[in-house]
Design a protein around this nucleic acid. Structure first.
Lengths: 193, 193, 193, 193
DNA sequence: CAATAAGCGAGACGGTACGTCCAGTCTTCTT
DNA sequence: AAGAAGACTGGACGTACCGTCTCGCTTATTG
């Protein structure tokens, strides 16, 4: 009845592949990362990679997920502004100027012309983060800390957009003060007082 | 003394290359775009491409620039909110759901792991747009239409960030109403009134 | 002490393998014949093949033997010339322009660089035929129908050599008249009368 | 007008390929000979091989031809029997128990299921030898040294057939005396005197 | 006004990696 | 306890491009 995808037999092979991909990507960069290289580094046949992943990007996405052990939940201290700042600072700390960050950016880049990868990236990484933030925002809206006439997803984009602009377009990492300014400005608005 | 970059002899060859790159990219997608393919389509020797461009991305960037005939200037009707909305709507119209938009996104993507291309893209495309917007914003600040305690570049990021978030992360194109909401919300702030 | 070759448990599996090999070889040709293909066609695990045969050639040799149900005995009508002609015509009929012939030729070909297969082919197919012919020839020698100063194996080679020359080098099949000419000429000699 | 096959640019590459193929074939055997191996040994890209040869067999055929610098002409001392014996002994000396002989046999073997190679082998190696022998035989026929009621090609097969039988089927090399016996017997016939 | 250099098309070259197929071994589950 | 199923490492396949390199040919100064 079910498609009967066979069980992944060799879990250690899978881990070796993902690990090798992460290492190699840091050593030679995403552009020169090759499935042959991953296979050889992992001591694995190429087929084993092709059996379980559709592209090198997919392997790297698995690597990203395992390395991040992504904590989608967002703190709730009662202070939405502080919570947002903390979350954004943490995110930039993890995915900013780090090897992992470079891989994340490369994945977003590859996704621009690889719809399959785009889907996977969205479903398994970006959406969970979006949702976590959106939920926290909705809570704040119910508490009257944020305008409640705005869609929570829209608010996520308003807040995180400036972060990604920096990350992807100028490839510089916003420092702490700038992140705090983003949140403060988003709350206060840019119209003259 | 100087590297003696020779004059570009064959202007028509250059145009054929750029044109072929644009066409091919639309036909087969950025991922399958190859310099061999461009050369063959353009009826040009591979060397002619390597002589003038460092990578396929650079060719495509030239194509993007020529196709956009980028108008960096930003209208000034006196109403900064209207001008920003108009500019953003126009930008999304040109670079959103169009073939050119796909190429632009692919270039941003490639730039994530190709510093040389990142530099060129920034200098020749993104910065001019940023600057144009920044100048218009500074004018508005001087007129008291925008808070003047904020850096204009920062303001650009606050306004355009949400646009790029949609474009690059969810790969959906913000429709007109959403763009207007972005500007309005940026001005008004998201704090409860 | 002995290698303990286990009993062949599944006789039907063995037959399915051999049958599948024959069919596949006719369909895709010896060069593209693979053990994987045979196993899958036969509905058999690859191991089952590796357990009983050392190479795809060995499987095919079994197929050849079973398909020929090789009749090593040679008719004895009393007329050695007629008997030789009949035997050679029959052989060419079976192994000449037929699917089975193509497989036989492929096996001889493979044997040129596969000593193990060469040995098996010789022992189980070629030698029995040689011996049958040699025995019939010795009988004829005793009856005074053939020179008795020549070794019977040598005579087999003199008679069958021209047949195989055609078969293996020019890959054309000698027709009936030519076969008869071979025998007649071998008897009469090529010296001018 | 003509198909314009481009001139072979790098003659040294071609020679390196053929040389590497000969060496490797002797070292690892025809069965384990691979185009990758040849390319790597020759210090050549795989494409360079695929550009000029359709299969590893074709490379080896070139090697065989160059190593043999095939002398198709056949001596004419006036004594056809002696000439035939000399030619056959020489042929067996070159292609019998030698590395080159193993390659020749492997090529004949491969040709059994590779029609393209079969054609090339026939045209460039076997036919020239056949023709040389046939011409010499026709001369002898005109001199009355051989029955003239028989086709010269047929005679070639009668004489060389027993040689190839040994070579290809039993993979033993006929020694000098046996070769002489073949010729003598072919002339005298096997009918009792 | 030759000659002489440069750019040009074409495409061969040594390479790297692709994605596929198969070899031969090993493991798991079924009968 | 043998067999089917098929995952595993590994090697080679034949293809596509990479970026470099000759080739002749055309063109455009420049001695």
């Amino acid at each position: 009845m079910s498609p009967r995808r066979p069980e992944r037999r060799s879990e250690e092979a899978a881990q070796a592949v993902v690990q090798a991909a992460l290492e190699l990507c840091q050593e030679v960069g995403y552009g020169k990362l090759s499935i042959e290289g991953i296979a050889s580094r992992a001591g694995v046949g190429k087929n084993t990679i092709y059996r379980w992943w559709p592209s090198k990007g997919a392997v790297l996405l698995d690597g990203l997920l395992s390395a991040m052990s992504v904590d989608a939940s967002m703190a709730d201290t009662g202070d939405i502004v502080a919570d947002l700042k903390a979350q954004m600072i943490a995110a930039v700390g993890a995915l900013g100027d780090t090897p992992l960050g470079a891989q994340y950016r490369a994945l977003i880049g590859e996704a621009q012309h690889n719809p399959e990868l785009a889907r996977a990236l969205l479903d398994r990484f970006i959406e969970p983060l979006r949702t976590a933030s959106a939920l926290r925002i909705e809570l704040a809206q119910r508490k009257g800390q944020i305008r409640s006439d705005l869609d929570s997803e829209f608010l996520v984009e308003m807040l995180y957009g400036p972060l990604y602009y920096r990350l992807l377009l100028t490839q510089r990492v916003p420092e702490r003060a700038r992140i705090e300014a983003i949140v403060d400005t988003a709350f206060a608005g840019i119209a003259p007082s």
